[in-house]
């Protein structure tokens, strides 16, 4: 499941945040902010995409560096939220 989530996130970043036509390296532990890949405006756009794509809600309190700095941390977060939503919907 992680590889699938990760692939979706990486595709979005490639299409929206990185120069087109060039195959750029994007390591899953790279800091998206320190590398200039996204900034505050880009993050808002990215969050909207994640919410729609995975049908989850991301509360404002969760928008913190531990969760949204790298592809790896965002992948882990999205997986956990999908899991929580699934449990909530069973209740």
């Amino acid at each position: 499941m992680d590889t699938e989530i990760e692939a979706i996130l990486v595709t979005f970043i490639r299409e929206n945040c990185l120069p087109q036509k060039v195959q750029m390296t994007l390591g899953k532990e790279d800091n998206l902010f320190d590398t200039g890949t996204i900034d505050s405006a880009g993050l808002i756009h990215f969050i909207g995409f994640i919410e729609d794509r995975f049908n989850i809600v991301i509360p404002d309190e969760d928008l913190i560096p531990e969760k949204f700095t790298t592809i790896a941390s965002i992948t882990a977060y999205v997986r956990a939220r999908i899991h929580e939503s699934a449990i909530e919907s069973l209740r």
Partner: peptide
Amino acid sequence: NRMMRTMFQMSGFRQ
């Protein structure tokens, strides 16, 4: 201005 909240939180600020 949700972007502003995100900026503070991602810059090490806590509500």
